[in-house]
């Protein structure tokens, strides 16, 4: 980042980047999983809508599970990646 930004700003930017990143990954991943690539209509149909809702919920669940797992692993062998705090809980 550019020079002269305070620590507060760096924290805020890091948070913004993380949230944006997670959002973009969910959009991309759930689009591949739920949207029919035939594109015969411009609207989400019923099945796709339900799929998207569930996909988002599941993504968060997976996010949490992996985070918990990594934290318990980090507790046993603090090393790779240096994961320590609780930055997984979006």
């Amino acid at each position: 980042m550019g020079g002269g930004s305070s620590q507060n700003i760096e924290v805020a930017v890091a948070e913004l980047d993380m949230i944006t990143d997670v959002f973009n990954r969910i959009v991309s991943s759930c689009h591949s999983k739920c949207i029919n690539p035939r594109y015969s209509e411009p609207d989400l149909n019923k099945g796709e809508s339900v799929c998207v809702d569930r996909c988002v919920a599941k993504f968060f669940e997976v996010n949490k599970k992996v985070g918990e797992r990594m934290q318990s692993m980090g507790g046993a062998s603090a090393g790779a990646g240096g994961g320590g705090g609780s930055p997984f809980g979006i």
């Binding site: 959002f23 969910i26 959009v27 759930c30 689009h31 739920c34 949207i35 594109y39 015969s40 209509e41 411009p42 609207d43 989400l44 796709e48 809508s49 998207v52 809702d53 988002v56 919920a57």
Partner: peptide
């Protein structure tokens, strides 16, 4: 359709 649908998809994800 692909473009329209993508935005609707993205909107829905945003809401959730």
């Amino acid at each position: 359709n692909c473009t329209d649908k993508f935005f609707k998809h993205s909107e829905r994800v945003g809401a959730r």
